[in-house]
């Protein structure tokens, strides 16, 4: 067993354990912190897959932005969660059953995949994938349009989020 495999197994185990803690932890702030651990584990796996740029983006976007947003929301809505309700709904066992069935189906599917036991293809000695990624994102014949659509989507989401989260104005009362 090589060093890479050991790193993968440890990282994978930590990622999965953190993921389970995210969905099982009774305290929401703890769940958010476990989510950060899980996202960092995925970033390490990206490095193992030679996708260094994506690992950096994972850290910046997911851990730097999304996880912080989630923690802010948890803190802004904290008083309600202090009330002692169950953290999972009554039919959680149905959810567990569906997740396990889905897992079985997924595993059965991917075990039939022809490339299942594939080992990674050799990368070129000088890894140019980052340059290729950068140029393909601004190339009209390749991925310029999806890239621009993604940026417009981000802008729309930003404006939409501001508009939705605006405090209720004086005139319009809460609709209850």
């Amino acid at each position: 067993m090589s060093v890479l495999q050991i790193i993968f197994l440890v990282t994978g185990f930590v990622t999965l354990l953190a993921g389970v803690m995210v969905v099982a932890s009774p305290k929401l702030v703890h769940a958010a912190l476990w989510l950060i651990v899980s996202l960092a584990g995925v970033a390490v796996l990206f490095v193992l897959l030679n996708a260094n740029f994506l690992a950096v983006v994972q850290v910046v976007v997911y851990i730097g932005a999304i996880a912080i947003l989630i923690i802010f929301t948890v803190m802004l809505t904290r008083r309600v969660m202090a009330d002692s309700g169950p953290t999972h709904n009554r039919t959680w066992w149905v959810a567990l059953l569906s997740a396990v069935v889905l897992l079985g189906g997924l595993l059965a599917l991917i075990w039939q995949h022809p490339a299942f036991q594939a080992v990674p293809a050799e990368l070129a000695a000088a890894d140019t994938s980052l340059t290729v990624l950068g140029t393909s994102l601004v190339d009209v014949n390749r991925y310029l349009v999806p890239f621009e659509v993604a940026s417009v989507l981000l802008l729309a989401a930003l404006i939409g989020a501001i508009a939705v989260a605006r405090p209720v104005a004086k005139g319009e009362e809460a609709d209850e």
Binding site: G19, V23, L28, N89, T91, A99, L102
Partner: peptide, 16 residues
């Protein structure tokens, strides 16, 4: 696949 199913369980079972 394991991580995805953990996420599915979280979406279906959590109340918050």
């Amino acid at each position: 696949a394991l991580l995805f199913c953990v996420g599915v369980f979280g979406v279906l079972a959590r109340r918050n």
